[in-house]
Every structure is written in C-alpha cells, then in structure tokens.
Design a protein around this nucleic acid. Sequence first.
DNA 1: CCTATTACGCAACGCTGTTGCTAAATTTTT
DNA 2: AAAAATTTAGCAACAGCGTTGCGTAATAGG
Lengths: 364, 364
Amino acid sequence: MTRVTADVTFLRDYNQALVMAVGRTVRSFERSTVVEATGLTPQAVSKVIARLTADGLIRPAGVRRPGIGKPAVVYELVPDSRYAIGAHVARRTLRLVLVDLAGTVHQSAVSPLPGDFTPKQLLDALTAGIGALTGIGELRGRLTGLGIGMIGPLDHAHGLVRDAHGLRHWHDVPLREVAEQHLGLPVHLDKDVTAGITAEAWRYGATFGDAALIMVESGIGAGFWLGGTAHRGAHTNAGEFGHTVVDLDGPRCVCGRHGCLEIVHHHAAEAGELARAARVVAVGVVNLLQTLDLAHVVLAGADLLRHPQAYLAAVGDAVQTDVPRADWLSTKVALSSLGADVIAAGAAMQVLDQHYGIPELAPI
Amino acid sequence: MTRVTADVTFLRDYNQALVMAVGRTVRSFERSTVVEATGLTPQAVSKVIARLTADGLIRPAGVRRPGIGKPAVVYELVPDSRYAIGAHVARRTLRLVLVDLAGTVHQSAVSPLPGDFTPKQLLDALTAGIGALTGIGELRGRLTGLGIGMIGPLDHAHGLVRDAHGLRHWHDVPLREVAEQHLGLPVHLDKDVTAGITAEAWRYGATFGDAALIMVESGIGAGFWLGGTAHRGAHTNAGEFGHTVVDLDGPRCVCGRHGCLEIVHHHAAEAGELARAARVVAVGVVNLLQTLDLAHVVLAGADLLRHPQAYLAAVGDAVQTDVPRADWLSTKVALSSLGADVIAAGAAMQVLDQHYGIPELAPI
DNA sequence: CCTATTACGCAACGCTGTTGCTAAATTTTT
DNA sequence: AAAAATTTAGCAACAGCGTTGCGTAATAGG
C-alpha cells in the first residue's frame, strides 16, 4: 500500500510487516529473534505478536528452553491462513497457481488460450481455471485476491493493458477493473517480468539485494528489484531488455533498431548455435551488472529453461570473467527457484504483499 | 537518514521533510498549499510550520488576500539558514561549490590537482579550497557538511574509496573518516554520477520521476534516480555505463570486453566524427530507456558539454525515433541545468538531504 | 452593523512505541 | 530442599504524533 503522509497507522502496519517478513523468512521465531532483527523493543514486539496471533496470521508453536531462565515461546507463520491466486498470461497459455502466505505454491495448472485471444476469452479462461482449482470453495475469506502477470505494455497503477505485444484485441483494456467485477476478487495487474522478480525476492527474504530476473521466452525481458522494491519505471514499461542494442551493425529487429539483444539471440538460437545464443544473453547480463550493480541475477523463461545449464554456465562464466574482479563485487547467478511457475507465483505474491508486505511511502 | 523500524520520531521527520520539499520546490507557500500537496490535516501542517519556523528554516513572508475571509500567511524557505560545501574530485581538478538550503550555487571554484595525486594532497587541496571560499567563517553553525563526488569504485555506506580508476594511490582509503577528522566537518562520499543526478532531482523537486544522468568525461558513466531516491547498486558500483557492450565485434576496451560504449565513442570522437560519437551515446541512452523506462535523461560531463547541442540533438532524435512511439511513453531529454557544477553541487545537496530531505526506512 | 467566509490554533483524543516495574518459569547455587 | 540468579513476558503509565471538535480572528459584502 502506498500513501503520501505518515501517520500512526502507517507506523503500525510497517512494524507489523517487519515481523511478518521475519516469519516468512525463517521457519519459526521467538520474540528475541524479532527484537534482534528489527530493533523494536521487546514490549513492542509483544504487542505486534499479540495482534498477529489474534488475526490468525501467526501461532505459538511450542517453547524453547535454552538453559537458564523462563523458556521462550516459539511462533510460526500460519501458511494456510491466507491464500492468493496467481495467473501468468502468455500468448498461448494461461498458467494458474495457488500460493499460501508463506509463498509456497500449492497447485499449478496450465490451460491453452485461443490464438489471438480477446479480453472476454481470457476472463472466461480465468473463471474456468480458478473454478477448477481444487478446494477453492473452502478458501472463502482466506483468499486475498488474484494477481495477473502479463506481457506489456501496461499501466500498473491503473490496471490497464495498454497494448500487449502481438495481441490484437488488447488496446487500453481496463483489465483489473473488469476482472474484479467478473470474478468478485481483488485483482492486481503487473508485467510478467516484474511479477517474476517479486517471487524471487519474496522467497529469498528481506536480505535480497538489488536483483534482476532475465526471462527468455518469445522475446527477452527483465524484471528488476531495486532498493527493496520492484522497479517498474516511469510508465510501468521497464524491462524491455531484449530491445537493447548489443551489435551496432547487427540485423534489423522488429522494433526498428539494429542489433537488438533479442534479434541477435534469436538468429543464433534459430541456427542451432546454443552456445552463441547463451553467450549473447550473457553479454546482456554483464551490461546490466555494469549499469545497475546487482547482487542477484535469476534466469527464467520457457526458452531458457529448455537448456538451463547452457545458459547458467554462459552467464556465470561471463560474470566471472567480464566484470572487474574484486572480492567485494560479487553477483550470484541462479536459475529461477520456481521454474515455470515463477511469473504466476510472483503475481500471487504481489497480492499477498499488498496486504502483508512492507508498506511504502510515496514522496509527494 | 536510514533506520529500520518506524517510530513517532520518524513520523515527525518524514512529514516535516515533506513540507520542506514543498518549500524548496516553490518560491513561497501557505498552509493550504501544503495541505493540498501532502494530504496532512491543516492542524498538522500548522504544527509542522511552527516547528520549522522556530528552527529558522522557514519564515513568514507576508499575507495573501484572495478575497473574502481571513488572509492566509505566506511562508518561504530561508535559503541562507543552512549551507553545504560540495566537492567534485576529478583526475586533474578539484571543483568546490557552496550551496544553500534552496539548492542555489553561491560560489564555484576550480583548482588543479597534482597528477596522480595522493590522499594527503587531496586533503590539503580541500582545506585550502574551502578556506578560500569567501565568507566561510561567518557560516559556522549553518554549515552542515562537505559532500564529495568522486570517481569510483567506492563504498558509499562506509565512506571508503575502493580503487579509483586511474589513480594509483587510492586503494581502500577511508576518505570520509579521514576528511572528517582533517576538516572538522561531517563528510558524505558518493560516486560523481550519483551526486550529479541528486542535484537534478533536488532542483527539479518532488515530481522528478525515474531519471538518469549521462556523464561523458574521460569515460562514460551514468547516475540513476529511481523510485524517489538515488540508485547506487548492491556495492555502490552502479553507473559503469560506459562499459556496456553495444558492438559485439567492436574494438577491445580497457576493461577487456569488445565494443563497449566508451571505446566505440572514444574512437569516433578521436576521429573527429562528432555526429557519430553523439549517435553512439544516443544508442546507449535508448538502451537505458528500454531497460529502465525513465522520465528524464540529463546530459552532462566536460567532453559532452563541449558540444552540447550535437549530443542533445542526437539523443533527442533517437529517443523520438527509436523508442516505440506512444503518447503515454514520454521522456524528457535535457542538458544539465547546472553545467559543470552539477557533480559538486549534487554532492553538497546530498549533505543537506541527509538532514532536511525525506528520511527512508530500510526494510530489515 | 451584521453575516458569511476563510484562516488558524487551543484542547482533548486515540493511537503508536517506550519505559518502569512486577510476575512467572526455569536453572544454578547454597 | 530452599534461596538466588536469570530470562521471558506483560501490565500500566507515559510521551509524542496526527486528528478531531470547536472557538477566535480577520476580512468582504450586504
């Protein structure tokens, strides 16, 4: 939740979210854990824990007797106290997942979408797919909403699909509003890559630094996690990473420029030169590191995950070789920990994050 | 100021900073202006204004009689209530500026630095330069500190120069600490490009969106302003924009890779092909826009400012032509409004920002 | 002179996290 | 077996924040 001014309710929500972040990161925790992690006073932590317990979000889970003194009460998150549904809308498929408060994916289902599908067809597919999730009826009251990760361009703030690449029927569609009415659920709309990086950040926990998710799948995109939050850009259009020029004299791209990362990669992949294709992506990743100085790079996307080791090795090598070596300058490269579910799961986590994540203040 | 947990003092500082931001942006303001901009209640604004007035940071400046009713009291920032000194440390020169609370540059002085200067030599130059600023003695008590904008790599959080490019005597120098002792002033250390974009953001005001400052000057760097704050990256090393590959088969760069933006630009500039040099920078800028979706691009740096119109035209054209056209997707391209002072002035503003800027919370 | 309108602050309030202190549960020492 | 030490945890009072209710000051218009 974003607001401009800070009042005491912000204060409460913020500190409460800090405790929830601890609960999500570790399996179980006690009061002293939170005190250490947050710097809140023990008394304040007690109050927060009492509130969260009353809401059913956390629960006592035994005691710890470390030696002398009164044993400490151990608490744990109640994963099944809240759920969210995540949808990954691609050009031909709809993937739906059910995610709990701890970020665990409980169900995952893929269904085909009609070629060049319309908004109506997507809504129908969403309705059918959500209905098919087993036990969805029993989650009433615990279902916080639906997150949609979709190809752009779109307007995250207004829930508007501006002009989805390669889909004729998607110009200025107020998808969030329409879906909320159609499904009777709160809906959150974001670019696929941004949803993806949110999933990685949520699962990794609060120590997740600046990071990018590279998605190779009918195009190349990137999602960014900068300064503890998703970076969407001035018009929610950040991440068109495939359309950065890496070869001034390269082949002409659909975007009109020459030598875009995407077209160069595509040519190499088409020619069956997997190693060269992977190296091209690696060059792009190192460009990102030089520009943004990231702590994590996560690789994802259907086309990439068909040859995960080739890409992982190429990017890992390039990061080792091409970035100036220094022990203080390290970047972890990894494959998406959620595989093909990462976009849908991240979209679901964005919904949970709106309610139970760390709130933000928007400077004027 | 960064802290983890939110308490009531954070509330106060935050809302107070919002009012200061209004005061810095507009020439004069009244209570209703602030109410509208922030959403605070009139009563809350009255309290904040009373505190700021007592501290001498703002003052009444007449009344406004809009017609019927009691006239409103008009307030204004007191620019000379606080000052900061900014230093831009380049390879051969030291530039010092004196900046007031409103962000106005009052004095600017350039002095040469010895070739391959040592930390000691820089400290002496700083001492001499600061002493030479006229009227500096009368500012005691109103001087908030010294900001240093310097070539990297460096560690902003610890005030440590890791390994300044091309300077032999600068390995792991704790410049902030040393300078604080030597000068008896609080010192703030940051990369030159980050200081530069801070200057633009401060002057532009709170509505400044995601932005980058492109600096062409013995190398090409970029400073980023993302999500209402400076983006420094995981290791304060963001902005090595010159070392992004734009030509896979291009000439070998000092960094070891081939076809870096910097080396390609350098070759064109050396050959006297100004238009081509400018176009190369423009390609890089469009790459940034595709990746990060920026609202502003600011051009700066000694080498660029020797031919400002050529670069401005090339980048402006490329942004118009190469980024997918849409009325909602607009980026403003401009030359640095502070010219050669931008880095030093930005460094000074970072010091002021620490005290009177909008405080941040660091999620665990 | 009266009324409507606008600006603005005092006082009381609700809420936050903090502080001071007491109670409870356990181990260690006598 | 009893007393002391140690640690956890919460009740109660408190300070500080923005908010709300309401009274007062200052102006224009009738």
